[in-house]
Amino acid sequence: MAAVRAHRVLPGFGLSLGFTLAYMSLIVLVPLSAVFILTSTMSVQAFLDAVASPRVVASYRLTFGASLMAALINVVFGLLLAWALVRYRFPGKRLVDALVDLPFALPTAVAGISLTALYAKNGWLGQYLEPVGIKVAFTPLGVLVALVFIGLPFVVRTVQPVLEDLDTEIEEAAASLGADRWQTVRRVVLPTLLPALLTGFALAFARAVGEYGSVIFIAGNLPMISEITPLIIITKLEQYDYVGATAVASVMLVASFILLLIINGLQSWSDRRSARGL
C-alpha cells in the first residue's frame, strides 16, 4: 500500500491534493495550532491555575463522568434497539429506523430547550418525577439526559450493519453443536459485535465530552455542580480571559485527540473482525 506510483494514470492529483492541503491547513490545522501555540507561552503555574482550579476540575468530573454514563446507557439500549431493528418485524419499524438519526439532524439548541421543557418542574415528565424526588432539569441528571440524547445514534448505527451482515450460518453452527439460544448469543453473537459496540461507545463518549448546545439549557450551569467544561471555556471568554479559556481548551483538545486515536484503532479492529470471507 505504501508503494508510490511513479506515473499516475488518472489526472488531477496535484490539483486535488494541493487544494485539499491548502484548505485543510487554512480551516483546520492553523487555527487549531493557535490553541497550542498560545498555551505554550503560558507559565506552568498560570497553566495549572487555569486548568486545575477546583471549579474547572469539578467540570471535568461532570463532563467526563456524565459522558461515560451516557455512553454506557447508549451501549445497552442502543444494542437493544439495533437488535430489534435487524432481527424483529414490528409495526412502525421504518419510522423508528429513520428517526434514530434525529440527534444528528436536530440542532442541539432545539434539543436542549425541548428536553428542558419536558423535564422542568411543570413539564410533561418533570411534573411526575419531581413529586417522587427525582429532579432532572437544572441538575447533573439533566446533563446526563441531554448526553444520552445526542449519543443515541452512535451505538445503533455502528452495531446495526454488523448485525445485518452476520451470517445466519454462524448461529446455525452454534445450534447444531448443541448450544442453546442464550449460549449462542453470549458466546458467539456478542463477541462478534464487541468491536462495533466499543466503537459506538467511544464515538458516543467523544461526542458527549464536547457537547454544549443541548446541555446548557437543561444543566442549570451551577458552578461546581452542573457546569460542563465547554461552558467554562465560554465563561472565561466572556470575562476576556482568553489565555485561561485556551488553556482549558488545550486540555479538551488533547482528550479529543486521544479519543480520536482510540476510535480509529477500534474501527480498524471492527473492520477486520467483520471482514467477510470466513
Partner: peptide, 11 residues
Amino acid sequence: FVFQHYALFRH
C-alpha cells in the same frame, strides 16, 4: 453440520 462457508467463530 458442516456449512458451505464453514461458519467458524472468528473471535
